[in-house]
Simulated scan of single mutants.
Amino acid sequence: MEGEFEIIDPVFQRYVLHNAKLEKLATGFRWTEGPVWFADAGALLFSDIPNNAIMRWIEGVGVSVYRSPSNYANGNTRDREGRLITCSHGQRAVVRTEQDGSLTVLCDRYNGKRLNSPNDVVVKSDGTVWFSDPHYGIKMDYEGGRAEQELPCNVYRFDPHTGRLDVMADDFGGPNGLAFSPDESRLYIADTGAFHDDNAERHIRVFDLEAEGRLKGGNVFHTVSPGAADGFRCDEDGNVWTSAADGVHCVSPEGRLLGKVRVPEMVANVTFGGRGRSRLFICASTSLYSIYLNRRGVQKP
């Protein structure tokens, strides 16, 4: 343990700045999730799901409400045009915020049946929108509203050019966070298990992306302990920075735990942002944290 960092593999020494301290940027939320960086606005957006709001943080300004009510927004990302893409528990949909601020529902049904509660989302370089759809938001009223489950817990790909929605993976108990490797040859997907199933599998799986856009493989990549991998992002070298109960864990492309950023609250999700995209923003239970690293996140619009 060295300051904010726990070094497990010596290579992790090169990724951290030992004079960089963990900063608490804001607190007083109920459950923070879905951080996304807007470099063109110098702002971070993130969800406070139980408070039914999307919040905005700006350096030197602090936190303000970006959207309330947010229809119990969870995961957020940006598309290739820089528009906000949001997973909505309340609408049971994936929603796009247009440049004029209006909202467009991209998808809320598959084969005529309602989605469960879209959770996390990423956009591939071809513009397709990939998202997980576990049942967490319809199993309780705290982060959405209890409702009948009409579909299995799948991972989907939505093509905004054609309007087509396809099931890409259907063998998860509770698919959650997901992220592409820097070259998009791999897709990492977390399985945090079925709701209230203490014996459920909780790990990150890795899939190869075939030329036709299909997923192949799905072996276990890494199992986080303590806690579970909820949300994660990749850096420029392909390392996976994932949430855990004791902070943020850095996992090599081979699935080896390299080190940890210690955080005093359970972490839900992370994203890279700031100058050079070398600042890791951390959504941890009731608070928003950040820390500077000696690695950059994968570039986005």
Rank of each mutant, 00 (worst) to 15 (best):
V122D: 02
N154D: 13
G144K: 05
D100G: 13
S125A: 05
V123M: 09
T104F: 05
H135V: 14
Q99V: 15
M140V: 09
S102I: 11
E143R: 09
R164T: 09
L115H: 00
N119C: 10
G145Q: 13
M168Y: 12
R114V: 09
N154C: 13
E148N: 12
E98W: 08
L151G: 01
C107T: 12
A147G: 10
V123C: 12
Q149G: 03
P118W: 03
D100C: 14
L165S: 08
D170F: 05
E143W: 05
V129T: 08
Y136T: 02
D171Q: 11
R114G: 03
D126W: 06
H161S: 15
G112E: 04
C153D: 12
V121W: 03
M140H: 06
L165N: 07
A147T: 09
H135G: 11
M168F: 07
N111S: 15
A93E: 01
S125C: 06
Y136Q: 04
G163D: 01
E98Q: 09
D120L: 03
D120R: 10
H135L: 14
G101I: 08
G127D: 03
F172M: 05
L106V: 10
N116T: 10
R164W: 02
G144C: 09
G127K: 00
V121D: 02
G137N: 11
I138D: 02
D108Q: 13
N111F: 15
T128L: 09
R96N: 07
T128N: 11
K113N: 15
I138H: 02
Q149D: 01
G145T: 14
Y142C: 06
L103M: 13
E148A: 14
D166F: 10
D171N: 13
R157C: 13
S117F: 03
R114I: 09
N116K: 09
N116E: 11
G112I: 04
L165K: 07
L115T: 04
Y136I: 02
F172K: 01
V105I: 13
A93W: 00
E143H: 06
V155F: 05
R109L: 12
Y110N: 04
